[in-house]
């Protein structure tokens, strides 16, 4: 986890509670999970992380570029484009 709780300063009257801390984490770090996360959300995050990692590691881009016989620039563009819908359409939401 990203935070170490400072127990000495921890008081019941503290306006932070565990939920707001978690919300803060989720807002700050994209991809932080939550209890109601479904399979789709999880997969989307993994896929986006993977594509970002491919784009960030140049040798890996080159590796894909050779496999597909495309230019590295095209490969980077393709990966960035795929970040929009990496796992296809989201499932229909069940009403809560």
């Amino acid at each position: 986890m990203f935070f170490i709780f400072n127990l000495n300063g921890w008081q019941a009257s503290d306006r932070f509670n565990i939920n707001s801390q978690l919300e803060h984490l989720q807002a700050k770090y994209v991809g932080t999970g939550h209890a109601d996360m479904n399979r789709f959300e999880w997969a989307v995050n993994i896929q986006r992380d993977s594509y970002a990692s491919y784009v960030g590691h140049y040798p890996m881009l080159a590796y894909f570029a050779i496999a597909e016989n495309e230019s590295i620039g095209r490969e980077r563009y393709n990966f960035m484009q795929k970040m929009l819908l990496p796992c296809g359409l989201p499932p229909e939401r069940e009403d809560e």
Partner: peptide, 19 residues
């Protein structure tokens, strides 16, 4: 920039098409 927040929520694919 490209905003994907709506496309992630919309299961009909319309938002993704309009992104």
């Amino acid at each position: 920039e490209l905003d994907y927040s709506e496309a992630d929520q919309d299961s009909t694919g319309q938002a993704a098409n309009e992104a």
